[in-house]
């Protein structure tokens, strides 16, 4: 079993946790967190991110179940706590709140905000690390979604990231093509996303976003880019991993029934158990 295969397994374990959490809470988002399974598997378990000093920012806050699942699997807090997702007083609120866990870097939910915060972090880290080489300056990884880039703030943030040559900043755009109301292309016409991002001056790498090997490769490549921020456009499938959830906007934030949960966990190769 190669490392890429292990990461794929982890991605499905994280997906299983997402579905269990949402089912237990009877609320939360499904399709986005599932589409980002491989992204979170690589960020936390791929060994390409220096978890001791780099920052991982989740800007599309509704993806938080997958972040919580990754943090729990990484040993940052007990996995049993996942069942408190969205409960009053829980450290796992329905959208991320900075400081609820030490690893939750930004409060997110209103889309676009985390992108600017990530830019501010990267900027400040460059100030503080000053003359030290790019390789030792902590990096900031920022996960955002394709619905999210409808927010104008995101493009304001890209301007700053490019103008300030933030080569310690790596964006990962989960391009799953769905949002609450419909397919992204139905809600807002983008044309070529990668082309637009490139036109803003970002160094764009477009990849198959549900393949851990491709994500590993892209991050490794992104770390070598000097002089400006990198944007990894990860083409993913909304609801990835569960056949009846895939590419269906109605699963954006639908809670699976007990039957649906059982079927989904089976497809993911996960045990049929609660968190």
């Amino acid at each position: 079993m190669g490392p890429a295969l292990d990461l794929q397994r982890v991605a499905n374990q994280l997906r299983g946790d997402v579905l269990r959490m949402v089912h237990t809470a009877q609320a939360g988002h499904v399709a986005g967190p599932l589409s980002a399974g491989e992204i979170y598997s690589v960020l936390y378990f791929g060994g390409v991110v220096d978890l001791a000093q780099d920052k991982i920012v989740l800007s599309c806050g509704h993806y938080c179940p997958i972040m919580y699942a990754a943090l729990a699997r990484n040993g940052n807090f007990p996995r049993s706590e996942l069942k408190t997702f969205m409960q009053a007083g829980s450290r796992l609120p329905g959208h991320p709140e900075r400081g609820s866990l030490p690893e939750v870097e930004v409060s997110a939910g209103p889309l676009g905000q985390g992108v600017s915060v990530a830019v501010g972090m990267a900027l400040a880290l460059k100030i503080q690390y000053g003359q030290r080489s790019q390789k030792t300056t902590p990096r900031v990884y920022c996960v955002l979604s394709d619905g999210e880039i409808q927010e104008g703030q995101v493009w304001e943030a890209f301007n700053t990231a490019v103008r300030r040559q933030l080569d310690n900043l790596i964006f990962i755009l989960d391009r799953n093509r769905i949002q609450i109301e419909n397919y992204v292309a139905q809600v807002a016409t983008y044309g070529e996303v990668a082309g637009r991002l490139e036109a803003f001056g970002l160094h764009v790498l477009e990849i198959e976003g549900n393949r851990t090997d491709k994500i590993m490769e892209a991050i490794t490549q992104a770390k070598e880019v000097m002089g400006g921020p990198v944007m990894i456009v990860a083409n993913t499938v909304g609801g990835k991993g569960v056949s009846f959830m895939e590419n269906d906007p109605s699963w954006h934030d639908k809670v699976p029934s007990q039957d649906e949960l059982t079927k989904a966990l089976k497809e993911l190769g996960e045990k049929n158990e609660q968190v």
């Binding site: 870097e105 992108v115 600017s116 915060v117 830019v119 501010g120 990267a122 703030q153 943030a157 700053t160």
Partner: peptide
């Protein structure tokens, strides 16, 4: 947002 990020460091 940038200000918040700067403060967080």
């Amino acid at each position: 947002g940038v200000a918040a990020g700067v403060a967080f460091t």
